[in-house]
Nucleic acid binder design. Structure first.
Length: 478
RNA sequence: GGUGGAGUGGCCGAGAGGCGAGGCAAGGGACUGCAAAUCCCUCUACACGGGUUCAAAUCCCGUCUCCACCUCCA
């Protein structure tokens, strides 16, 4: 069974064949750091984190690039609003994104380039495009000539003549209204605009053969992708909303300049609330930093990752809670398995059905069904005292959760999985109470036994009776 | 106007011509002094109207509703 992925460019599920055997290169459009991340942003990071983990579990050596767009109109506008340099806005939000990726267990990218660090590469790309007759300078700006690139619109399935004319006022200098900016000339060339510590935080600008200015958004990704992955690479990913114009324009720039560029295009669907797409512009965002106060991060990750990456996910606290309940059942099995078997998880292979599900365009929902089936089998084995079967099920479950990035034994969850210090301090005390309760039970004084259990419960300690005696645990929050 | 997507049981969420994913919740049962946990069972669906087919949630035609992109957006 080989991996098959849905490729937006061909609108079909295709066998995945990397350019170089054993190696996979991925470029993911990361954040435009104009605001802190909401759960929709992180879903994208998560979807491609699962892709990456699955590729690595399948034996590939993965190079994963996720950029940071640290300069754009909104960042500049926000900086101006706040009266601070744009980079203050960009860096503050970049930290917020990094925190969110980390707290949700997204593996750090191999490379995480910032747009502002790659202006020379961009200038060079513009040069190539102008020389090839695909771009032209006008009034300090440089535009891509969409009419010069017959394939323009192929990715998004649109024809130039059907598109709504762009409503920008600068159309006069463009050869075609759909031509997009590769380079934006500085509006007012204020000298010293970049000088730190001055009151003037005017537009940042870089010197070029076409005059001072700053890069266009689409150009940045083309330049950074080829800088780190070469002129041809395997997978380009991003949210569906980037399909047009961003990815269409990336293709135009890179292919017109002679690069083969991405072989597969993958797009994740977005998170909706009340049926509407969550977005900064609609103001209905749910910040990761807020949601994570209501549920454990691993539960948020489990929830966001549980739907197929190409399906819209309607976010609700109810659905999140239901999903968390399912995850806790899995955790409960692992905890009881460890107590019963007396050891931690060991390495094992993945169930074929699980692998087949992920090979089929990352069928996480079907893969989760295998996880639950295995949990049930493991629970049954535990109840029957079949430790061999229980251990096998436990190891498989852990291996599967690991691929999905929700293995409670792995970082970053392991550190929070067990409140070791609290347990060690409480243990002897709880044991005394449990001994008293057991004594009460033996003399059939159930009123006392239950009172002791209730007392512990009100302290957040949950007691469960098992065939081998009582076990206790700290209650989950919320 | 152009392009793409969605409508599945109480809820979430897969599937994409034929043996009714899975989870959460609910009800019943087993176990238990009780509870919890666990296991077993049960309920149940494919927006609407036609059509094709031995067989359609799945294909075709039509209708309705919703969403997204075409402007910054994961």
């Amino acid at each position: 069974m080989t991996l098959r992925l849905y490729d937006t460019a061909t609108r079909a599920v295709r066998d995945f064949v990397p350019l170089e055997p054993g190696r996979v290169s991925i470029y993911l459009c990361g954040a435009t750091v104009q605001a802190p991340p909401h759960v929709g942003h992180i879903r994208s990071g998560l979807a491609f984190d699962i892709l990456r983990r699955w590729l690595e579990a399948s034996g590939y050596d993965v190079t994963f690039v996720r950029n940071v767009t640290d300069i754009d109109d909104k960042i500049l506008a926000r900086g101006a609003d706040e009266g601070v340099p744009f980079w203050q806005v960009a860096m503050r939000n970049e930290r917020a994104f990094t925190w969110a990726y980390d707290v949700l267990g997204c593996l750090p990218p191999t490379y995480e380039p910032r747009a502002t660090g790659h202006v020379p590469e961009m200038v060079e790309l513009i040069d190539r495009l102008i020389e090839a007759g695909h771009a032209y300078a006008a009034d300090g700006d440089v535009y891509f000539d969409v009419r010069s690139f017959p394939e323009y619109g192929a990715l998004s399935g649109q024809r130039l003549d059907d598109m709504q004319p762009a409503g920008d006022s600068e159309a006069s200098v463009k050869r075609d209204p759909r031509d997009f900016a590769l380079w934006k000339g500085a509006k007012s060339a204020k000298p010293g605009g970049l000088a730190a510590g001055t009151a003037d935080h005017g537009e940042p600008q870089w010197a070029t053969p076409w005059g001072p200015g700053r890069p266009g958004w689409h150009l940045e990704c083309s330049a950074m992708a080829s800088r780190y992955l070469g002129s041809a690479f395997d997978i380009h990913g991003g949210g569906m909303d980037l399909l047009f114009p961003h990815h269409e324009n990336e293709i135009a720039q890179s292919k017109a300049a002679g690069d083969a560029f991405a072989q597969y295009w993958m797009h994740n669907a977005w998170v909706t609330t009340s049926g509407e797409k969550m977005s900064k512009s609609l103001g209905n965002s749910l910040l990761v930093s807020e949601v994570v106060k209501r549920v454990r991060p691993v539960e948020l990750r489990f929830y966001l990752g549980s739907a197929h990456y190409r399906s819209m996910l309607e976010f609700s606290d109810e659905a999140l809670a239901e999903s968390a309940a399912g995850y806790r059942r899995i955790e409960g099995f692992l905890r009881r398995a460890e107590e019963s078997l007396g050891d931690g998880p060991g390495a094992t292979g993945l169930p074929p059905a699980f692998a087949a599900a992920l090979d089929d365009d990352l069928g996480v929902p079907q893969a989760l069904a295998v996880v639950y089936d295995t949990v049930r089998a493991g629970n049954a084995a535990l109840a029957e005292g079949d430790s061999g079967a229980a251990r096998r099920a436990r190891d498989e479950v852990v291996a599967m959760l690991d691929v999905l990035g929700v293995n409670p034994y792995a970082e970053p969850w392991a550190a929070h999985a067990d409140d070791g210090a609290a347990r060690r301090a409480l243990g002897p005390l709880v044991d005394v109470v449990l001994a008293q309760r057991q004594a009460a039970r033996e003399r059939k004084d159930f009123a006392v036994a239950d009172a002791l259990r209730d007392g512990l419960a009100s302290s957040g300690i949950v007691v469960e009776d098992t065939p081998t005696g009582a076990r206790w645990s700290l209650a989950e929050e919320s």
